[in-house]
């Protein structure tokens, strides 16, 4: 075909398109087959049978936010580790030492977060 990048885009794009088309076809078919009856009571949010008394989008526990922040840090660490892991045999001992320093710095932050109680859920 043309060149590797375009090939990949075609492959992934076609797959995403066919996957979305399968889901879309299933939902459209169900729209054709299913009965529709308008009733305002059906459109009320579910709250175990009572009428919902407030908006559901309330402030939530800040812990979820902290987990998201830590995720960004450590996922980036993992992404930095991949190229290193691929080139590991060519880098030799220097690469090993450098990566230990890198992981060491991150572990300091990890234990700091642990001692601060970010990882504790009560």
């Amino acid at each position: 075909m043309v060149n590797p990048t375009v090939d990949l885009l075609i492959q992934f794009g076609l797959m995403a398109f066919i996957g979305a088309a399968v889901a879309f076809a299933l939902i459209t078919m169900s729209h054709m087959m299913s009965p529709t009856s308008k009733n305002p009571n059906k459109a009320i949010s579910y709250e175990c049978g009572v009428l919902p008394c407030a908006e559901a989008r309330v402030p939530y526990n800040v812990h979820f936010y902290l987990v998201a922040v830590l995720f960004v840090l450590f996922d980036l660490e993992a992404v930095f580790l991949y190229p290193w892991a691929v080139a590991y045999r060519t880098l030799g001992v220097v690469g090993l030492v450098e990566m230990f320093i890198f992981i060491g710095i991150l572990l300091v932050g990890y234990f700091y977060a642990w001692k601060k109680g970010v990882l504790d859920w009560e």
Binding site: G19, A20, A23, L26, H31, S34, T36, S45
Partner: peptide
């Protein structure tokens, strides 16, 4: 059975996002 069920969108929901979310898990 699933096919012949009505597809409800709650009035309080954010319609477009509500409709598109299953695709994001599926594709």
């Amino acid at each position: 059975k699933l096919m012949s069920k009505e597809d409800l969108v709650p009035a309080a929901a954010d319609g477009p996002v509500f409709r598109i979310a299953p695709y994001i898990l599926f594709v």
